[in-house]
Simulated assay, not measured.
Amino acid sequence: MNALKGLSQPVSVVLVEDDQFLRDSLVEYLGLKGLSVKGTGTAAGFYQLLEQEAFQVAVIDLGLPDASGEELVDFARNNSEMSLIVITANDGLNSRVNCYRSGADLFMGKPVEGQELAAAIMSLAERNISRVAVDQPEEDVAAGWQLNSKSWSLITPKNDDIECTVKEYRLLAMLAETPSEPVKRPKLLMALYGRDDESAQRALDTLVRRLRQKIQQDWDEEGSPIRTVYSVGYLFADQIVVKAS
């Protein structure tokens, strides 16, 4: 099994490629190399997979049928700790520059060789593991709540690990930016749903309610740290530290 040193599990990869033959071929090859790969041909499928699990590396084709691959790169860079590889038939200078500006770690022109892609994935994953393994100050380790940007989870002061969906993690990350100070509803709605209407407001309330319930299952203290500030928004009413590992 092709796992990195110190890890018992193989490197997890999400591959976004609309050419089904190429996608299936790469998924099969990378799987034979010991990587754990999930493939999809659309941006919608990409977001759905991110809701289900956290990946270490994303391989994204620019020419998708329902969105620009650059949008996916930008989203992944701002909402995860994944390493990002862009693959495309359009490997001109402007395309490469735009991808790097969006946050890509590596740019590969088509046709993509499976052997080279596998080596690139392992190199980026190993580099990322080394980066986040740097010793943290003792006061950070001893902090109350922790938001783990590598595993997309919330860790309680009692060291219980609460797994989060993409939207749950993004909500917590925004609240963590200003602990004990409310984040306004319009800002949350635009960041999480891209709109401020009745449907989005109901979705936000449902998201908060479900996240509170999830926290309460592991946190036996009275009350949830996510508090409602009526007519304003929500806040995280305790100390919280964002960690990369």
Score class of each variant (00 low, 15 high):
residue 89 A to W: 03
residue 103 G to M: 08
residue 162 I to G: 00
residue 33 K to H: 13
residue 148 N to W: 11
residue 80 S to N: 08
residue 211 L to P: 04
residue 127 R to S: 13
residue 54 A to W: 01
residue 201 Q to R: 15
residue 80 S to V: 08
residue 230 Y to H: 09
residue 21 F to H: 11
residue 41 G to V: 14
residue 177 E to Q: 09
residue 81 E to G: 06
residue 201 Q to K: 15
residue 220 D to H: 11
residue 222 E to Q: 11
residue 193 Y to K: 06
residue 171 L to N: 07
residue 167 K to G: 04
residue 235 L to F: 11
residue 227 R to E: 15
residue 131 R to S: 13
residue 104 A to E: 08
residue 89 A to R: 12
residue 28 E to P: 01
residue 90 N to Y: 11
residue 177 E to H: 06
residue 90 N to L: 08
residue 109 G to S: 12
residue 228 T to F: 07
residue 180 S to L: 02
residue 206 T to G: 03
residue 34 G to Y: 02
residue 39 G to Y: 08
residue 161 D to T: 14
residue 238 D to Y: 07
residue 13 V to M: 12
residue 172 L to D: 04
residue 87 I to V: 15
residue 116 E to T: 14
residue 74 D to G: 12
residue 91 D to G: 14
residue 225 P to C: 13
residue 58 A to T: 05
residue 24 D to E: 15
residue 94 N to I: 09
residue 92 G to V: 06
residue 45 G to D: 06
residue 99 C to Q: 05
residue 244 A to P: 00
residue 83 S to E: 10
residue 5 K to V: 11
residue 94 N to G: 03
residue 27 V to P: 11
residue 44 A to V: 12
residue 135 D to V: 13
residue 66 D to R: 01
residue 221 E to G: 08
residue 35 L to A: 10
residue 31 G to N: 00
residue 42 T to K: 03
residue 8 S to Q: 10
residue 188 L to P: 00
residue 142 A to L: 15
residue 78 N to S: 09
residue 9 Q to G: 08
residue 123 S to C: 13
residue 142 A to T: 10
residue 187 K to M: 10
residue 47 Y to N: 08
residue 45 G to Q: 03
residue 195 R to K: 14
residue 153 S to G: 11
residue 37 V to T: 10
residue 231 S to P: 00
residue 194 G to C: 07
residue 110 K to D: 02
residue 71 E to K: 03
residue 192 L to Q: 07
residue 57 V to R: 05
residue 165 T to M: 11
residue 110 K to Q: 14
residue 223 G to N: 04
residue 193 Y to D: 07
residue 190 M to T: 14
residue 173 A to M: 03
residue 132 V to T: 15
residue 214 K to M: 02
residue 153 S to N: 09
residue 67 A to Q: 12
residue 208 V to N: 07
residue 234 Y to V: 08
residue 158 K to V: 06
residue 185 R to D: 03
residue 32 L to F: 05
residue 26 L to K: 05
residue 215 I to R: 00
residue 134 V to D: 05
residue 230 Y to R: 12
residue 80 S to D: 09
residue 126 E to P: 03
residue 105 D to W: 02
residue 20 Q to P: 04
residue 116 E to L: 14
residue 34 G to Q: 06
residue 19 D to I: 03
residue 1 M to P: 02
residue 54 A to D: 10
residue 224 S to C: 15
residue 159 N to R: 15
residue 13 V to Q: 10
residue 179 P to K: 07
residue 155 I to P: 02
residue 74 D to E: 15
residue 4 L to I: 04
residue 217 Q to G: 01
residue 27 V to F: 12
residue 59 V to W: 08
residue 97 V to L: 15
residue 125 A to M: 01
residue 10 P to C: 07
residue 217 Q to E: 11
residue 187 K to N: 09
residue 185 R to F: 03
residue 67 A to G: 09
residue 64 L to K: 01
residue 78 N to R: 13
residue 40 T to M: 15
residue 185 R to N: 05
residue 68 S to Y: 11
residue 70 E to Y: 14
residue 52 Q to A: 13
residue 200 A to F: 09
residue 136 Q to T: 07
residue 45 G to T: 04
residue 218 D to R: 14
residue 189 L to D: 09
residue 159 N to Y: 13
residue 190 M to V: 14
